[in-house]
């Protein structure tokens, strides 16, 4: 056993302890008084249909309230395709010796 292994193991156990304590302190799932159920979701549920005019609330959030996010999501798709094409596409050029 090297000299550095023991302090590292101690740090690791400490971090694991903190994580476990944090998880046990989380509020139970699905309770109405949880901090995640704030005025944002309340607003979506109550007024999404009159603010966006669509019935599907998920579409209202994805394509209207969070339209910026979806736009850059499509740009992420574009970048992924670009990366795949750059790395995989082989075009035979003249004078390549192939």
């Amino acid at each position: 056993m090297r000299l550095r292994t023991l302090p590292m193991l101690l740090i690791l156990l400490l971090v694991a302890y903190v994580v476990v304590v944090a998880v046990t302190e989380l509020p139970p799932y699905g309770i109405a008084g949880n901090p995640v159920h704030n005025q944002v979701s309340q607003r979506y549920i109550e007024s999404a249909w009159e603010e966006t005019g669509v019935l599907n609330m998920i579409t209202a959030v994805v394509l209207d309230y969070r339209a910026y996010d979806t736009m850059f999501e499509t740009i992420v798709l574009f970048t992924a395709v670009l990366a795949v094409i750059i790395t995989l596409k082989t075009t035979e050029r003249e004078g390549d010796g192939k």
Binding site: T52, G53, V54, L55, T59, A60, L63, D64, A67, T70, T74, L77, F78, A80, V81, V84, I85, L88, K89, T90
Partner: peptide, 30 residues
């Protein structure tokens, strides 16, 4: 209904399908 939402959704849908097709063709042609 929904104003621009339907048009934006059409764009996103076409975009996603073309991504699938392009990825597949690029890999299979390789």
């Amino acid at each position: 209904s929904g104003g621009l939402i339907g048009l934006i959704g059409l764009g996103v849908g076409i975009r996603v399908s073309s991504t699938m097709i392009t990825l597949f063709f690029t890999m299979i042609e390789e």
